[in-house]
């Protein structure tokens, strides 16, 4: 790792000031950034640690509205009792990220800022129609995720929270790579007052996306059987050493079916 200067921010305002120095980067759980610095894929001059800022921590549920602070760990999301009632699908999804030690440190803000094409949270937030709140503005999930490792965030902009309205039904199904355990295909389905939305991670050439074919079938009938015979096109899906685009296309339909079945339980 190259030399770096560490700063521990005490508030979002403090972090916003500190992140202006040199080629600084925000540090949250460090589960992506520190490994990247070790291999010198990232070499910030300064790190601004957000993980001790109280105002960025925790899950709030008020009526149907769920708000999750950016520095809330995957472990805390997975185990939050209020969230398990309001949106059990999201708590379950968080329990499937990486391993226990990764979940103890990795955070929702870091995960969505990084926007790994195989990360789990982007699928959930896109399907839930979530709003990403920063220290500058609010951004809809559909405008926030912009392709592989790209987001609408400007330099130094800090995610403070995400919020969404709890859906009537939702579920997440993940087909894992047997070695890395990241999603080869992950499908989050949500049925709310604005209809049905189905978001796919791990598969798109351009990152997370909504599957129109699956949504069209489910709008008519929110049942696993409604997906019998539904074909997802392989166009714009990833082909890599783990799976071909055609295999991923088939997996999307299979995972969507399982997710709908789980959401209907």
């Amino acid at each position: 790792m190259y030399s770096v200067n560490y700063h521990r921010a005490t508030s979002v305002a403090d972090a916003a000031k500190l992140v202006k120095s040199g080629d600084a980067k925000l540090l949250s759980g460090g589960m992506t950034l520190i490994p990247a610095m070790k291999t010198r894929l990232a070499a910030p001059s300064d790190l601004v640690d957000l993980s001790r800022i109280k105002e960025l921590q925790g899950v709030k549920v008020s009526g149907k509205t769920v708000t999750i602070g950016a520095a809330t760990t995957h472990y805390d999301v997975a185990n939050d009792e209020k969230l398990k009632k309001a949106c059990p699908a999201l708590a379950h999804m968080a329990s499937l990220i990486g391993d226990p030690a990764v979940r103890h440190r990795g955070t929702i803000g870091g995960s969505i800022a990084n926007n790994d094409p195989a990360a789990d949270y982007p699928a959930a937030l896109l399907a839930l129609g979530a709003t990403i709140v920063t220290n500058k503005r609010e951004i809809g999930a559909d405008k926030f995720f912009k392709g592989l490792f790209e987001t609408a965030l400007k330099d130094g902009e800090i995610i403070t929270a995400v919020s969404f309205s709890a859906p009537a039904k939702a579920a997440y199904e993940k087909f894992r790579n047997p070695a890395s355990r990241y999603a080869i295909v992950g499908v989050f389905v949500a049925k709310g007052k604005d209809g049905v939305s189905v978001a796919v991670t791990g598969a798109g050439d351009d990152g997370v996306f909504r599957s129109k074919e699956i949504e069209a079938a489910l709008v008519k009938n929110f049942a696993a059987s409604a997906l019998d015979g539904v074909k997802v096109p392989a166009k714009n899906l990833m082909t890599d050493i783990h799976a071909s685009a055609e295999y991923r296309a088939n997996l999307i339909a299979v995972m969507a079916k399982r997710a709908v079945a789980a959401a209907n339980v």
């Binding site: 560490y6 460090g30 589960m31 520190i34 490994p35 472990y75 030690a101 990764v102 890395s180």
Partner: peptide, 22 residues
């Protein structure tokens, strides 16, 4: 690659990978 867990210690009562933390 933060994957093997040989470095796990407890920080404030939670298991973490000490190779992935400053």
């Amino acid at each position: 690659t933060s994957q093997c867990g040989a470095c796990v210690v407890h920080v404030d009562g939670k298991a973490v990978k000490s190779c992935s933390m400053l």
